[in-house]
Computed example of a mutant assay.
Amino acid sequence: MMSWEFFREWFLPGIWVTIQVLVYSTVLAAIVAFTIGTLRTSRFWIVRFLAGTYFEIFRGMSALIFMFWMAFAVPLMLGWQFVPLWSGTLALGMTYGAYGSEIVRGALAAVPAAQREAGIALSFTRMQRLRRIEVPQAWPEMIPPFNNLLIELMKGTALVSVIAVADMTFAGNLLRLATNESAPIYTLLLVLYFLLAFILTRLMRMLERRAKAGVGRAPEKKNGILTRKLSGRGESAQASAQTAGGVG
């Protein structure tokens, strides 16, 4: 039977491992995304080609198969073995980092050309233009798609259970074998993953509001939007009345 003792002894350690995998792979994915995404905007074609090659390879590669390759093929090829936790972390971080690089590239490309030209006129180097002009303006546009990608990465952490990483999915499967109960265990897993996704979404929305406020584009509240719309209608009606009066 499911009880607090089972939850404390099986699921709590698994939740902590899941959080570790999520944090480590998120950090790696962010580094890869910003590095590859920035290199794909380089003015040197060879740099763009190499970064694009990385993107195409990992976009078309299965994270699960790459995880198997890291855990089981690399030891046979090189004679040394990754800890399973790091095999899963590297596979997830490198794969989802490739997806994130397209978000970075697209957001940087969306920065108005006049902004980049202003940086060139001020004799900024490429790194200075990125740090002071392009990334601060592109960052708020990256956060919503990054939020979706982070949720997908969080759900993808369940894949590490197949290489014997004791995350909460692995713990749930072991507990199912020990208790022969499937419905309560997998229901609990669904709830736990949903709670993690909900918390991550709230944190990312807070980050988005702060990022937009930093560039003077804080989102309006609903009543503010309603007020703006109503005032816009009033101004339109007033302008129409003035026009009609002028014509008359």
Rank of each mutant, 00 (worst) to 15 (best):
Ile120Asp: 05
Gly106Val: 14
Gly172Pro: 14
Asp167Phe: 10
Lys155Gln: 07
Leu175Lys: 13
Phe170Gln: 02
Ala118Gly: 09
Leu188Gln: 03
Gly119Val: 10
Leu122Glu: 15
Phe198Tyr: 08
Met142Thr: 07
Gly100Arg: 00
Gly93Val: 12
Met127Tyr: 05
Arg105Tyr: 02
Val83Phe: 08
Leu78Val: 10
Pro136Glu: 03
Trp80Phe: 14
Arg129Ala: 15
Leu108Trp: 11
Ser123Ala: 15
Trp86Glu: 02
Met94Ser: 09
Leu196Ser: 03
Arg205Ile: 01
Ala178Val: 01
Trp86Gly: 02
Asn148Leu: 04
Leu174Phe: 10
Pro112Ala: 13
Thr169Trp: 00
Thr89Ile: 15
Met206Phe: 11
Arg126Cys: 02
Thr125Glu: 12
Gln81Asn: 12
Glu141Ser: 15
Gly156Glu: 00
Pro184Cys: 08
Thr95Phe: 14
Phe124Gly: 06
Glu134Ser: 07
Pro184Ser: 09
Thr157Gln: 01
Val135Lys: 04
Gln81Ile: 13
Leu108Lys: 04
Ala166Ile: 13
Leu108Ala: 05
Gln137Glu: 03
Ala166Phe: 09
Thr89Phe: 11
Thr201Ala: 12
Ile185Leu: 08
Pro112Asp: 14
Arg132Cys: 02
Val162Ser: 06
Ala118Lys: 12
Leu177Asp: 06
Gly93Gln: 13
Leu177Pro: 00
Ala183Thr: 15
Asn147His: 11
Arg131Lys: 15
Ser161Trp: 01
Asn147Ser: 13
Gly119Phe: 01
Ser87Lys: 02
Leu177Cys: 04
Arg205Lys: 08
Val111Gln: 06
Glu152Met: 10
Leu207Cys: 07
